[in-house]
């Protein structure tokens, strides 16, 4: 369980995070979405006690992170996979981490196995590819078998296999009842991974919703195909729907749902070839929500 309440972080005159509040519940993957510079990383760094909040609070399991005695047993985090000492061997990188929280060496071997790095345990981290570093960072997050996990942009730089592996891993962790918060600036990725979405822009909350709700909220009416469009238009208009003619003979109906349309058409004996709700892709919804909140926008688009 993660709770962020009225969190604000200022750097000089700029607010990186501005009165942000949201909750992340156990058993779900929550996507933390926003354009670059929206304050995602800053929020995560405050959650982990790396940066101090200007005001407000960020709680993990009801308390402040700094008060945890052995933090790795409660919270695992992957912030920056490249933030490792290149001269150290993979096993030793996890080794000192384990030692810092009283975790045994056997667990180190276990997590290396789980992330598929068992064969590279004796290799120096400096020679690792970005994908291997991401895996090592995830191994570090899993080391203490924590109930809360934070991943900052975990799929950045990964190949399709790696992306799918991370997606399945996160779904698996949530299914085990853990709280999983994953930041990303890619809606398309979160659409496949997350149950809930916390969308931020310029440090402020834009939406706190489920993936389904978001899709529904950006619904664009119902698409209907029929061999007798003119007749159907009349029927549906009479029933209170507003009907638009699409190019290609399809109709877009607003104000009536799929069931209404089906019943009215059946009552008048009008055959239907297709009836389905139209929704904007989540990518479009996200772009619409975050429009104007990107920190650096191209002057001409």
């Amino acid at each position: 369980m993660i709770e962020v309440r009225e969190l604000t972080k200022r750097y000089g005159g700029t607010a990186a995070v501005d009165g942000l509040s949201f909750q992340v519940r156990p058993g779900t993957v929550t996507g933390f979405l926003g354009p670059n510079g929206a304050g995602k990383s800053t929020t995560m760094r405050i959650l982990l006690g790396l940066a101090a909040a200007t005001s407000g609070e960020a709680l993990v399991n009801g308390g402040r992170y700094a008060e945890l005695r052995r933090p790795m047993l409660e919270v695992g985090a992957l912030l920056d996979a490249s933030a490792v000492h290149g001269g150290r061997r993979a096993f030793d990188h996890l080794g000192w981490l384990a030692r810092s929280n009283g975790i045994g060496r056997r667990r180190v071997a276990e997590v290396l196995e789980r992330v598929g790095l068992a064969g590279a345990a004796r290799r120096r981290v400096g020679g690792f590819s970005l994908g291997m570093r991401q895996r090592l960072g995830i191994a570090a997050a899993l080391l203490g078998d924590p109930g809360v996990l934070l991943f900052d942009e975990p799929v950045n730089g990964l190949d399709p296999d790696g992306v799918r592996w991370i997606r399945e891993l996160m779904r698996g962790l949530a299914a085990e009842g853990r709280t999983v918060l994953v930041s990303s600036h890619l809606m398309s990725e979160m659409e496949l991974t997350a149950d809930r979405l916390v969308i931020v822009g310029r440090g402020r909350l834009i939406a706190d919703t489920s993936v389904r709700e978001l899709a529904e909220r950006f619904g664009r009416g119902v698409l209907v195909r029929s061999p007798r469009p003119a007749e159907l238009t009349g029927v549906l208009s009479a029933a209170g729907g507003s009907v638009e003619d699409d190019a290609g003979g399809a109709l877009t109906v607003a104000g009536l749902d799929v069931a209404d349309i089906g019943e009215r058409a059946a009552a008048h004996g009008i055959p239907l070839y297709e009836v389905r709700p139209r929704s904007a892709s989540l990518e479009e919804a996200y772009m619409e929500l975050t429009a104007g909140s990107a920190e650096f926008e191209a002057a001409i688009s």
Partner: peptide, 14 residues
Amino acid sequence: SEYATGMIGTSVAV
């Protein structure tokens, strides 16, 4: 060296 690599974040977190 920990500030140079960024590993200080991990150290301070654990």
